[in-house]
């Protein structure tokens, strides 16, 4: 049985099972990555593998490669908006100090939470902790 044998360009059940096995193997790699204890390996095996898994699902299960090109462009446009949103807002979130502002609440939360985690209580959660937010930003 040819695995590429197609009905309307699609694959056989055996092919889909093969993709599923590959996806499970990749899941195993993403779980094993953190065990090595090197941060960049963890990031690579976690997010690099996630991208590969997403590609396999989109290509082989959603048959995106057989779809009209404009569908791919439609989806990529949505992804581009996501990156635009990220690029526009992340500097104010990831940094707690800017040229004319300081996010006092965020700084305080990082300090408080780091301290709390260093002396973690058995139940861990810090009830009543105020989340850092833009509301705490001070302009000067």
């Amino acid at each position: 049985m040819s695995e590429a044998a197609a009905d309307h360009g699609h694959h056989t059940p055996a092919f889909y099972v093969k993709i599923w096995v590959i996806l499970l193997m990749l899941l195993g790699v993403s779980l094993a990555g953190p065990e090595i204890g090197i941060q960049w390996v963890t990031l690579l095996t976690a997010f690099g593998i996630a991208v590969v898994k997403a590609y396999l699902v989109a290509k082989n299960f959603m048959h995106l490669n057989l779809e009209r090109r404009y569908v791919v462009y439609l989806l990529l446009t949505a992804v581009a908006f996501m990156f635009l949103f990220y690029a526009g807002t992340s500097p104010d979130i990831m940094n707690h100090v800017g040229r004319n502002w300081t996010n006092v609440a965020a700084q305080a939360e990082v300090e408080r939470a780091t301290e709390a985690l260093n002396h973690e209580v058995p139940h861990g959660a810090d009830h009543g902790a105020e989340p850092a937010s833009a509301e705490g930003a001070e302009h000067h």
Partner: peptide
């Protein structure tokens, strides 16, 4: 994407 993007930027800004 908006939700996960927000999470990632907060994750990077908050080591805790």
């Amino acid at each position: 994407g908006g939700l996960l993007g927000s999470y990632i930027m907060h994750r990077l800004g908050h080591p805790e």
